[in-house]
Design a protein around this nucleic acid. Structure first.
Lengths: 146, 146
DNA sequence: GTATTTCCTATCGGTAAACCATGATATAAT
DNA sequence: ATTATATCATGGTTTACCGATAGGAAATAC
């Protein structure tokens, strides 16, 4: 299950994605629009900023915007930043691989084989869906294929 | 990510699945073979018992065996018992559906649409793989299709 | 009736999730 | 410059869950 943090991140990013142009949005505005806890959202956007998905300006007239076009930001990127590996087992993770503590032989582990397929299926969906696609889909029809 | 508990459960069940016939296996034997904490495994098998995946007999000569043929027990069943919903959001869960706390309209939520596909992909893999298939696959080739 | 083995309840330390409070720092308008 | 406005940084709180263990009750075989 996705963390609350990750859900909030996706909500915020989708709002920014819908915001055409380079207009900056305030944390408080996003929080209000989506009913998110403001301080928590602040921390989330900060993390997204450090990871290059979002850019910011501080001080009066400041705020947040996407750091790149919405079709270059995928759900997979967001989930990995917020919640870590997509894989159900670290030993089948591509981006966060780590051997299982007590595994005698990774190559013959039946659980691993199954979970590898799960990981691939999840990654296929999440890495294959961008913010732009999700927004378009929400408008009634998927206009962008990726 | 799967919990440790769930991993242990799958390991134990695969051992039982490999055990032909109705021979009972001791908790201590399973624990020893797979290097699992015995007391913890005890609790896990108890839970699997209460959920009908496993049957037991107590006292001398007692132990555990699968409650039904290995091709009728799927990874999906096990994961749901141990870790709950497969879905990344409760609002897209089929077996554990629950509305998101702060969702204004479930039907237009873009995040939900994406996560629904993820859920389906995961369920397809896990519900489509039985203990028997995993064991067969481990022997080099999948002999059973389901 | 005694040894064996599962069943049941309770507990515990550690860790992470979800926030909140406070203040520092950068920016723009006055 | 000063002030109002925002983001940035740090640290704490509360709650809940995860992984595991302890101790004994209940059932079964010999």
């Amino acid at each position: 299950m996705l963390s609350q943090k990750c859900k909030y991140a996706l909500q915020a990013l989708l709002i920014l994605a819908r915001q055409a142009g380079d207009e900056l949005l305030l944390v408080s505005d996003i929080a209000e629009r989506e009913n998110l806890p403001k301080k928590f959202l602040e921390a989330i956007l900060l993390e997204l900023n450090r990871n290059g998905l979002v850019r910011s300006r501080r001080g009066r007239g400041g705020g947040y915007a996407l750091a790149k076009p919405a079709d270059l930001i995928t759900f997979g990127q967001v989930v990995r930043i917020m919640d870590g590996p997509l894989a159900p087992l670290s030993c089948v993770s591509v981006n966060y691989y780590r051997k299982c503590d007590d595994c005698r032989d990774e190559l013959t582990c039946e659980i691993r084989k199954v979970m590898r397929r799960v990981r691939d299926a999840v990654a296929h969906e999440l890495d294959g869906t961008s913010l732009a696609q999700a927004v378009a889909e929400g408008r009634g029809r998927a206009l962008l294929e990726g």
